[in-house]
Nucleic acid binder design. Structure first.
Lengths: 82, 82
DNA sequence: TGAGTTTATGTCGATAAAGATATAATTTGA
DNA sequence: TCAAATTATATCTTTATCGACATAAACTCA
């Protein structure tokens, strides 16, 4: 489970998932209609992609985005951290 | 915990969090340098905002984005769903 | 009903993403 | 070491975000 805190960190997460699936940038791009160049720029946090582009990449890699209150992680067995 | 599957769903999630914090669109926008108009368009999924804009909104609402493999939810007490 | 608040739409200019394509740079493996 | 594969950059055009307004529409409440 990875917490994305910036476009750059998000790009690194996407890259690690892509590698886990054994895909190169060209293949990952083909799955979602992105050029290899765009995949490269997004992974390096150079692109600051749009939301729909991110969702397409997430879907292609079998990933999902979860949005929650900060500090709601599974390891916060207590619940008074607010 | 909310799973965002599209810009539109993401917008609805953002809206619910904003309301939970008792903010109107103008106030939420001021926290991150977005106009009320932009907040409206993003929440309605009409804008398809950029990643950095999303991160700014998340931060302002005290939220965080988690990216994980599909089906890695906390309720999958077993771990062999892959 | 009507004023005040909140949200939705509209326009315009500037900036950046994205598609297409090419090519350099890097990495990998024989 | 060298060729192939992979990744990083570059340029050009099209399109969309975003800030800045302005204003319409919807909602709240006395």
């Amino acid at each position: 489970m990875q917490i994305a805190t910036s476009p750059k960190v998000l790009g690194q997460i996407l890259k690690s998932f892509r590698l886990q699936k054994g895909l190169n940038q060209h293949q990952a791009g083909e799955l979602v209609g992105l050029t290899q160049a765009m995949v490269s720029r997004i992974e390096r946090g150079e692109s600051n992609a749009r939301i729909d582009t991110l969702f397409r990449l997430l879907a292609a890699l079998g990933m999902e985005m979860i949005v929650q209150s900060k500090g709601t992680g599974r390891d916060s067995s207590d619940g008074e951290k607010w």
